[in-house]
Design a protein around this nucleic acid. Structure first.
Length: 653
RNA sequence: GCCCACAUAGCACAGGGGUAGUGCACACCCUUGGUAAGGGUGAGGUCGUGAGUUCAAGUCUCACUGUGGGCUCCA
């Protein structure tokens, strides 16, 4: 039966029977066929293998070595090359899986030999040797039982497990890719011959569990990458270096913002400079709470564990909590503010006129995180959130969700965080409350998002144990996603605490409780924001806003006076009056990313004017002191992202 | 918690069985210099903690703690 295939230029080609991708390419031209690595059919996302048969009526776009998307094919094959290399070097190693990931690929091995960093170089060399042999990559279809037998004989138990699973799913055959003497179970796609893999680089070593299950075998994962050319690889490695420079742990040290100590693992100490950032953020949120009709409260740190039995935290969250026994009584340190807020709500009669009742709490929380998961400021054991709970009537839910998204947007805009995405997480397996209640809560969130026309993605089973939630993923300056804000809908806690309000019908009703945070934790946020800004904080968040630099001792008194004047305006200005050259002082201030450096020489002193150097390196001279002060005050008050002091066109010293 | 690696001065690192080094930072002195490092002198470490091997341990072995890269987890 004749088969018709359409090409991207609109033309159609006929074949006597179903052709492979490569057949189609050959029919167009030998050059194209030579470079073919796969194809995209019917505008689908995934690339199909060049050996796949094409059905009648399909539209096809051939992917060649020149297309960036072919990286997926190249990396897939490179993963096989890595597995072959490893097995040639260490024949006892068992292979598992080796998928393509963003920017590269990895392969997980079960190896009696623990790989060392030196081994990585050996592996890379071996991979290059294998590629030089330029084996043709061929595909065979094997009967599942035949495949199981073959891999069993080889002792490849992981492959056997995978194939047995495919068999259970009803697969009759599996595809096997050969390259020279080596072969592997694989769905593809793969290159025609190994010489088509341009450049490879083995990157790092890690541990991983078989099938991602911590109860199963611990495997050794080797990360690597492949690119179309040396330049692209170099660019990628450069980007990795650049990302390292933004590492907030590095910046925290360099800028003197926070430290860690082995006697308080996972618990940051904020230095005076770091504390400025912390407090400025808190002040910002307090201002916003005022605007959005929230009230701040202060609640206890340590509670009788009866509270956590009542809230369900003991049953669901115990392994992450700190406990102590004092005078034969069991206490727990709060991991969240919500149970305390429920007690506060329940301490008085509430009327529908009091709702929505929005309570904010900067209380310190402690969560016992497993030792291997801590990471700088982004995963800690002691932290404080911009946490608030909204108790409202069911009918008010939608408006509150809307108000929250508005609030969040204002905060993110001020901070220059314009890219974020919303995720809706639904009921997890381990949870409290009836399915009926969960239905209601999930529906409410979804409805609100739709009404607001907010795009979102559903994460099935990712909700909190007490309710579904919205997670706001902020995407930073180098496109990494971070979970910061959250809005959690909770029908369970109000029930657990028998919370009520009296409605206009004079009957008692249960309020809905919303848990919400915009920055998430201050610790985590500061970490993320440092990486986002690469340490270049806006003026209002800068620990040192202005550094006054005298050129010689002659201007020391005048400079000290200027420092005093700025401080009187509430500006964090500091004099660097040391006996050092100006260039040296500039360099230091520059490394500390101080927004404004005031250079005070005889000229400025005699004319009472300001010469300022911005952290960008730009300079503005002969500013009237009062004008400068006014701009600083304004920039601070408005929490401006950009400097209000603009160099005049063409002006340079 | 799991796998692997690392731990030497405030920071960044070198050293590798015979009693500790460099650069920056710090202190003092000289220098008073106009936009990213002027010069000199000095102080600072029981080499993460605890055991073991050895005549001798920062160095070798083990355990623990912390940190890092991942995995798992992340309300």
């Amino acid at each position: 039966m004749a088969v018709t295939i359409s090409l991207p230029d609109g033309s159609k080609k006929e074949f006597p029977s179903e052709p492979s991708v490569l057949d189609v390419a050959k029919s167009i031209g030998p050059r194209l066929a030579k470079d073919t690595l796969g194809a995209v059919i019917d505008n689908e996302k995934d690339i199909i293998d060049l050996r796949s048969k094409i059905k009648n009526g399909t539209s096809i776009k051939i992917v060649t070595v020149k297309d960036k998307v072919s990286l997926e094919v190249i990396r897939h094959s490179a993963a096989h090359v890595m597995a072959q290399a490893v097995q040639e070097l260490w024949p006892k190693v068992k292979v598992t899986i080796g998928p393509v990931i963003e920017n590269g690929f990895f392969y997980d091995f079960d190896s009696p030999h623990a790989f060392t960093p030196e081994d990585l170089e050996k592996i890379e060399k071996k991979m290059q040797e294998i590629c030089k042999k330029d084996y043709a990559v061929t595909r065979e279809e094997w009967q599942v039982d035949e495949a199981i037998q073959t891999f069993e004989k080889m002792g490849e138990k992981y492959k056997v497990e995978l194939i047995a699973e495919l068999k259970n799913k009803g697969e009759k055959t599996v595809s096997i890719y050969h390259q020279g003497p080596w072969f592997d179970l694989c769905r593809g796609p793969h290159v025609q011959h190994l010489g088509q893999i341009p450049v490879m680089k083995v990157l790092s070593l890690a541990g991983a569990y078989w099938r991602g299950d911590e109860k199963r075998e611990q495997l050794q994962r080797i990360y690597a990458t492949a690119f179309l050319n040396e330049a692209d690889l170099k660019k990628h490695l450069h980007e990795l270096e650049e990302a390292k420079k933004r590492d907030h742990r590095r910046l925290g040290k360099d800028l003197g913002l926070f430290i860690f100590h082995h006697l308080a693992p996972g618990s940051p100490f904020f230095t005076p400079n770091g504390t400025v950032i912390y407090n400025e953020l808190q002040r910002f949120l307090r201002d916003k709470y005022q605007e959005h009709n929230y009230q701040e409260v202060i609640t206890p740190q340590i509670f009788d564990i009866d509270l956590f039995h009542q809230s369900g935290h003991y049953e669901n969250y115990r392994e992450n909590m700190y406990f102590s026994k004092i005078e034969e009584r069991d206490f727990g340190c709060k991991p969240m503010n919500c149970p305390g807020h429920c007690l506060l709500y329940g301490s008085d009669h509430r009327s529908y006129r009091d709702l929505p009742w929005r309570v904010a709490d900067f209380g310190r929380l402690h969560r016992y995180e497993r030792s291997g998961v801590m990471h700088g400021l982004t995963r800690v054991r002691s932290f404080s959130q911009d946490d608030a709970h909204i108790f409202c009537a069911l009918e008010q839910l939608q408006a509150e969700i809307e108000g929250f998204m508005q609030f969040l947007n204002e905060v993110y805009t001020t901070l220059g965080m314009t890219k974020y995405h919303v995720y809706l997480s639904t009921r997890p397996p381990k949870r409290m409350g009836s399915d009926e209640v969960w239905d209601k809560a999930e529906a409410a969130l979804e409805k609100a998002l739709k009404q607001l026309n907010i795009e979102y993605t559903v994460n099935i089973g990712d909700g909190a144990f007490y309710g579904p939630k919205l997670d706001i993923m902020f995407v930073d300056a180098i496109n990494r996603p971070w979970q910061l804000g959250t809005l959690q809908c909770d029908f369970n806690l109000p029930q657990a605490f028998s919370l009520k309000y009296v409605g206009d019908d004079n009957a008692e009703h249960a309020p809905v409780m919303l848990h919400r945070a915009i920055l998430g934790s201050f610790e985590r946020f500061i970490g993320v924001y440092l990486e986002h800004t690469a340490g270049h904080l806006p003026f209002w968040l800068s620990p040192i806003q202005v550094r006054v630099l005298n050129v010689t001792d002659r201007q020391l008194d005048y400079s000290a006076h200027l420092e005093k004047e700025l401080k009187a305006l509430g500006i964090r200005a500091y004099l660097d009056g040391r006996n050092e050259k100006l260039g040296y002082k500039i360099r230091e201030a520059q490394l500390l990313k101080v927004p404004y450096m005031l250079v005070i020489g005889d000229k400025e002193k005699d004319t009472d004017t300001i010469s300022v150097r911005l952290s960008s390196g730009e300079m503005v001279n002969n500013l009237k002191k009062s004008d400068f002060f006014e701009m600083l005050e304004k920039e601070y008050r408005l929490r401006s992202l950009k400097s209000l002091i603009k160099p005049k066109q063409g002006e340079k010293v």
